[in-house]
């Protein structure tokens, strides 16, 4: 009996910690207008070049889209809003501490070799932290870029920092 009630409590905590929404509900949500806006684009030019198949021909998954945001929101929130408004599939891993984007528009990490995946830049800079750690400022320009070479093909060469 003790074990059973512990299981029930665990299940309640697990379900209570998740927000479950139907597809219509999810895509029907709109952000409150705050006047703050960022530009966001999602580009997979490198994957198109790498894959060379007829299924993925358009490098621009999202081209120069403007989304609104609330003060304190992050790059992750902007991506969520943009994907919600344009009904683009995406998948992330992680929690409030660090979020990692595994795939956008059915294009996943490792789909184009073992050095491939999604990276992002804010105003041309590539922050080396999770996308939910970077706060948005009005007028920021966010680019989500697909790399096939650990960032070297999108202007973000990976340099290993030696440990002291």
């Amino acid at each position: 009996m003790k074990r059973f009630s512990a299981l029930v409590i665990l299940a309640v905590i697990l379900i209570g910690g998740c927000s479950v929404k139907s597809a219509e509900e999810y895509y029907g949500e709109t952000n409150a207008e705050t006047g703050l806006r960022v530009k966001i684009s999602i580009n997979c030019e490198n994957a198109v070049k790498y894959l060379k198949d007829n299924k993925r021909v358009n490098p621009d998954i999202l081209k120069d889209c403007e989304v609104g945001f609330k003060k304190g929101e992050t790059v992750f929130d902007a991506l969520k809003t943009a994907c919600k408004e344009n009904k683009i599939q995406f998948e992330y891993n992680g929690s409030s501490e660090s979020v990692y984007i595994k795939g956008i528009d059915y294009l996943y990490e490792f789909d184009c070799g073992e050095l491939s995946g999604w990276e992002y830049s804010v105003n041309g800079e590539f922050p080396s932290v999770g996308c939910n750690a970077v706060r948005l400022n009005d007028g920021d320009e966010i680019k989500w870029l697909y790399t096939c070479d650990l960032g070297a093909d999108i202007g973000n060469v990976f340099k290993a920092t030696p440990h002291n």
């Binding site: 998740c18 479950v20 597809a23 999810y26 599939q89 998948e91 059915y106």
Partner: peptide
């Protein structure tokens, strides 16, 4: 554990 796929049934924490 896998959120790939075009037909979204519902969403859990923004993952379809």
């Amino acid at each position: 554990f896998s959120h790939n796929g075009a037909t979204a049934l519902f969403f859990i924490n923004d993952n379809r």
